[in-house]
């Protein structure tokens, strides 16, 4: 019994055929799920970021400002709206409690999206298509993206970042 000591030679007792079969089946399953990840990494279309750099919040802020000044076309709710050219580096700055700027992207074109934080950890959660990435202060999290659907998207912060966390919503257009 489990609460008392086992018989003296418990290690020498052979496994039942059922147990052997199960271990093999489970082992094969574990190998398959382990292979699945790297396999998809090389063959799949959608993988997390492969590129990142250490960058101070001040420098990321300055880069975002340069980007906004270069491509700003207007404002919405006091937030700059930016239309960047395809294949360019684009920036979204997260801070307590907002996302800037509002991007207008072209469907089918590729962009290099830089995500950075000015203060806390934030969560970049693009809705309603539901894609989620971590935004960490001191790091530039880079995503190579190609929008495939047009429409209005919102960026929800899904990493708790302070008592105003739920007010932190951003916006993004794909045309």
């Amino acid at each position: 019994m489990s609460l008392g000591s086992p018989t003296k030679y418990w290690w020498d007792e052979p496994l039942d055929p059922y147990e052997k079969t199960w271990v093999w089946a489970a082992g094969v399953f574990c190998v398959l799920i382990t292979i699945a990840m790297p396999f998809w990494h090389y063959t799949g279309d959608q993988n997390p970021s492969q590129e990142y750099y250490k960058i101070s919040p001040e420098k990321f802020d300055a880069a975002t400002e340069r980007f906004i000044t270069a491509y700003k076309v207007g404002e919405e709710q006091g937030i700059p709206v930016v239309v960047p050219p395809p294949k360019s580096d684009i920036f979204i700055r997260a801070h307590q409690f907002g996302w800037e700027p509002i991007l207008k992207l072209k469907v089918g074109q590729s962009y290099k999206l830089h995500l950075g934080s000015m203060d806390m950890n934030h969560g970049f959660s693009l809705q309603p298509i539901n894609m989620n990435f971590q935004v960490v202060p001191g790091w530039d999290n880079i995503l190579n993206i190609t929008p495939t659907t047009t429409g209005v998207f919102h960026i929800v912060c899904n990493e708790y970042c302070g008592l105003g966390h739920h007010t932190m919503i951003g916006k993004l257009y794909v045309e």
């Binding site: 006091g78 959660s125 539901n130 899904n158 105003g164 739920h166 932190m168 919503i169």
Partner: peptide
């Protein structure tokens, strides 16, 4: 969660946000 609803979030209607 499959709809993308965030965890640790007080108000998913975003009633106090800019949008």
């Amino acid at each position: 969660g499959g709809f993308g609803v965030p965890r640790r979030h007080w108000d998913i209607t975003a009633a106090e946000s800019l949008f």
